[in-house]
Computed example of a mutant assay.
Amino acid sequence: MTTTPEHDKRIAEMTFSSVYPHYITKVEKKGRTKEELLQVIEWLTGFDEKKLQDLINQKVTFKDFFSQADLNSNANLIKGVICGYRIEDIETPLTQQVRYLDKLVDELAKGRKMDKILRTA
């Protein structure tokens, strides 16, 4: 699926620190914890809590965030629709990576079991 250049640019320039509080609110509202969210983010990106906090403090863009990430080799197993786009069909790598993260946060908030979210089951 093709995203527009404007859409991709907007995602690339968005700061992770502007979205992260919304991730926390979303999962906590559904009874999950910040620690579970951190586990999901670390699985996808390789960032531990300290590194993640450093990136938040630096107000890095999603472009910089994912350029520093060591993407999990099973990330390509993340499939489904998020924000109207089928993740596996998104052609722009950065946009796809951001949508991977969005999908994992959604799965966590929806109560999916952690081993399924982390694609270990």
Rank of each mutant, 00 (worst) to 15 (best):
F66G: 03
N72L: 04
T120C: 03
Q39V: 08
A75Q: 02
D8L: 12
S17P: 02
K63R: 15
N57M: 13
F66Y: 10
M1I: 12
N72H: 09
K116H: 13
D70W: 07
I90C: 00
E42L: 07
Y23V: 05
K113T: 13
L44M: 14
Q96F: 01
K103A: 12
T15F: 02
V98F: 04
R119M: 07
M114Y: 08
L104A: 01
R99P: 04
Q96G: 01
V98D: 01
Y85T: 00
D102F: 06
I78H: 09
D70P: 04
Y85S: 01
Y85F: 03
A75H: 02
E107W: 09
D8F: 10
D89M: 00
L77T: 04
D70G: 08
L55H: 13
R10F: 14
G80V: 03
L108P: 02
I41P: 04
A12P: 05
S18V: 09
N76G: 04
G80M: 02
K29A: 14
P93D: 00
G84W: 02
F16S: 05
S67T: 10
E28P: 03
P21V: 10
T2R: 12
L44S: 14
N72T: 04
Q68R: 15
D8M: 11
F16Y: 08
D89P: 00
V27H: 03
Q68S: 14
F65W: 09
D106Y: 12
F66L: 08
I78S: 09
P21S: 11
Y85C: 00
K79M: 02
K30Y: 06
D102C: 04
K79S: 03
Q53D: 15
Y23I: 05
D106L: 13
R119L: 07
L55I: 15
V40I: 08
L101Q: 09
S17M: 04
T25Q: 13
F65G: 08
L52H: 11
E6Y: 09
S18R: 09
I117M: 02
T45R: 09
T15A: 07
A69C: 11
I82T: 08
L118Q: 01
K63C: 12
I56G: 14
Y85N: 01
M1A: 14
E49F: 14
E28L: 10
L118P: 01
D54G: 11
D64T: 12
M1P: 11
M14L: 15
P21C: 11
D48V: 13
I11P: 04
T120S: 07
V81R: 05
I87G: 00
